[in-house]
């Protein structure tokens, strides 16, 4: 038998890595493509970058951005609260609670958000007066004219929030079911109440499963809120629309809106990473607590833990 080792290989230098010419060809091709697209973007006068710059921070647009943020956060807050309630109802032994939550989820996931928004906007046609009181038996405490309290912004918040609640319910339920049933039993066996066990033991562990999809939900809600433009809420897209119907500078204003949506999404994505990192602490106990800046330096890739 002969050995490959005709001479002793050098150990003071690393092995010569394999040449990968295909990778270089692909990279060159993509670089060319990107350069071409950039050239088109900047050389085509129809994009009107000057107009984009002019409106990017204009008062109307900024007001629209603020309203978009407000809508997104309110709708998500309503959605999370409703979602937790509906999820707990779905996990209840009580058939009526289970059935009610199931029906809610079916109705609000089963119809387009746009339909729901228009529906809320036209609520006054269905219930001209909205009354607070004891159902069936009275007395009524206060009564409002539906048209005055269901303003377009309220309708948008309600519509988006109720719709979101149905999606969040399933996310929360999946999160709760992901927690080992032994955790609940251990809490109960120690003499904790079911509510204490849920709050202190199960929900905190469910969060690790709930947070990543919730981050996605916030990001899609940010863009879903543009639907409110059809019920005359002047959020970001409407604000841009109002300007371009006046000036006919449609493309640059859509670019303005898009730049803002992308920026806000970027901010949300970073926030999501930070929160996920914190929740992961009991798993990667001794992992360094990397801040946003070290993450950015690492190119957004997760920094390898000691695992």
């Amino acid at each position: 038998m002969t050995s490959d080792k005709e001479v002793e290989p050098r150990l003071d230098l690393p092995p010569v890595p394999l040449a990968r010419p295909g990778r270089w060809v692909a990279a060159a091709f993509v670089a060319l493509l990107v350069a071409w697209i950039v050239a088109i973007l900047f050389n085509n006068p129809n994009f009107q970058w000057k107009v984009v710059g002019k409106y990017l921070f204009s008062k109307e647009i900024i007001d629209g951005v603020k309203l978009t943020i407000e809508l997104t956060l309110t709708a998500m807050a309503i959605g999370v609260v409703l979602g937790v309630i509906a999820a707990l109802m779905r996990l209840s032994q009580n058939r009526l609670l289970y059935g009610t939550a199931t029906f809610y989820i079916m109705a609000f996931r089963g119809t387009p958000a746009l339909v729901q928004l228009i529906f809320w906007y036209n609520l006054a046609a269905l219930f001209p007066k909205i009354t607070l009181g004891i159902p069936f038996f009275g007395p009524d405490f206060v009564s409002f004219n539906a048209n005055t309290i269901i303003t377009p912004v309220i309708a948008a918040n309600l519509g988006l929030g109720l719709c979101e609640g149905a999606y969040m319910a399933e996310i929360v339920r999946a999160g709760i079911l992901s927690v080992d049933p032994g955790q609940r039993e251990a809490g109960i066996a120690l003499g904790l109440t079911r509510a204490q066990t849920m709050r202190r033991i199960i929900l905190p562990q469910a969060l690790r499963v709930i947070v990543p999809p919730t981050g996605n939900q916030i990001i899609s809600m940010l863009k879903l809120s543009s639907l409110a433009s059809v019920i005359s809420v002047t959020e970001l897209l409407s604000a841009a629309g109002l300007i371009y119907t006046r000036t006919f500078e449609t493309i640059p204003l859509l670019i303005v809106a898009s730049l803002w949506y992308i920026t806000l999404t970027g901010v949300l994505t970073l926030g999501q990473r930070v929160i996920e990192r914190r929740l992961g602490r009991s798993v990667a106990e001794t992992a360094p607590d990397a801040g946003i800046w070290s993450r950015l330096r690492a190119g957004g890739r997760p920094i390898a833990g000691p695992d």
Binding site: G182, Q183, A186, G187, I201, S282
Partner: peptide
């Protein structure tokens, strides 16, 4: 318990 069931979040 057989599977210890320590609270994993604490």
């Amino acid at each position: 318990f057989q599977r210890f069931n320590l609270f994993q979040n604490m």
